[in-house]
Amino acid sequence: MTARSRRLEGSMDAGATFASAFEGSPTPMVLVDTQRPDHPIVWANAAFLTLTGYAWEDIAGRNCRMLQGPMTAPETVAAIGAAIAAGTSFEAELVNYRKDGSWFWNGLTLSPVRDADGVVTHYFSAQADMTGKRTLEMTMSDANANLGRQVAEQTADLRAALEQKTALLHEVDHRVKNNLQVISSLMLLKARRTPEGEARDALNGMAERIGALSTVHRMLYSAGDVTRFDFREFADDFVDDLVAGIDGERVAVDASIESMAVSAAMAAPLALMLHELATNAVRHAFPDDRSGRIGITARRHDGALHMVIEDDGVGLSAGRPNPSGFGRSLVDMVVRQLRGTIAWRETAPGTRVEISVPLDSVSLRDAVADPEDNAS
């Protein structure tokens, strides 16, 4: 036997082996002849027949378009035709139909088969039933869509609830502001009708403190975020009112306040603290028409509000005693409530008060407590 005959015999044996392997493969396979009109089916394995429900006699010599139906995508069919015309490989998933009319998602791979001269003589196609995968994808897509709708609905509900809460808090701040203004006005009216002395001074002092709290609620009412309070905005307004009520040629007020957002729960204590320290400096640091300067600074550092109020007046020890006053006690109480620290210092001349209050994770019992509860 010649070498050529042995190679020919070996090729025939290999071809028979491959044909037997393809015939017994669990992967559906089909072969069409591109040299004959309409590219008829010339071979299909048992798995292909099982997938489609056809017998060999039903498909032999027919074009694979017999598997197409109403839900088969025309653009995919056109792409298959273009790949075959170009002699290139192609992969796609499309809807095909079985003999009984039931449909399935067919994942097919087309591969050209060329002769010794490189001419495409056949096309080989491996198939795969992708219905389960597609069904799972559609189920997941529907589930995701439903989840998205539920999230959107819940988000809308939460947004509506938040808007209602915000509107309610705005209304509460508005009413509290109005009520505090009424109370302050009543106290001022009573003070005017009270003889000069400790009682009148006490009424005027309480009216001013209530006015400071009213300013806080006015700012909370006008702010977009009802949970936060801009300390600088309040301080600027307060300093403007303070300057308007004193002789600017005799006492100068210098303020440097950084913009910082603090919890709305801290608004009232901080407002009272600033009010007491600044007004006390104005009233007691410069007796007998003494001139001087008051400095107010506040900044945020390491999660805390650091505030300094100082003057170059007569100092704590030289100030006139005020038996009816409790401003310093009120400031000390507020600082304790805010879990902060305070230091009172004589600066010769004048007084310097340094305060540090944590702005994060501050736990407050009440915005304003009864001084009796903090006496010790």
Score class of each variant (00 low, 15 high):
162 L>G: 07
91 E>I: 11
43 W>A: 14
352 R>K: 12
150 Q>R: 15
202 A>I: 00
362 V>T: 15
302 D>E: 15
353 V>I: 15
287 P>L: 04
272 L>A: 09
129 D>F: 07
340 G>D: 01
288 D>A: 14
308 V>N: 12
139 T>M: 11
286 F>T: 06
296 I>M: 14
361 S>G: 14
179 N>F: 13
107 G>M: 07
209 R>Y: 04
208 E>C: 01
126 A>E: 11
152 A>D: 14
325 G>A: 14
330 L>Y: 00
16 A>E: 14
174 H>T: 04
245 G>L: 09
204 N>A: 10
27 T>K: 04
330 L>R: 06
329 S>F: 07
320 R>S: 11
150 Q>H: 14
65 R>E: 08
17 T>D: 09
61 G>H: 09
98 R>H: 02
97 Y>I: 10
194 T>Q: 05
173 D>M: 11
93 E>N: 10
11 S>K: 04
141 S>C: 03
58 D>G: 08
260 M>Y: 04
57 E>Q: 12
232 R>N: 13
308 V>G: 03
37 P>G: 05
332 D>Y: 00
264 A>W: 01
117 D>M: 08
140 M>I: 10
350 G>N: 08
44 A>N: 01
101 G>Y: 08
9 E>V: 06
234 F>W: 11
235 A>C: 11
135 T>F: 04
142 D>S: 11
30 V>R: 03
86 A>W: 03
291 S>C: 12
149 R>N: 14
82 A>L: 13
339 R>G: 15
200 R>H: 02
375 A>F: 15
213 L>I: 08
47 A>M: 04
127 Q>N: 06
160 A>H: 11
283 R>H: 13
234 F>S: 02
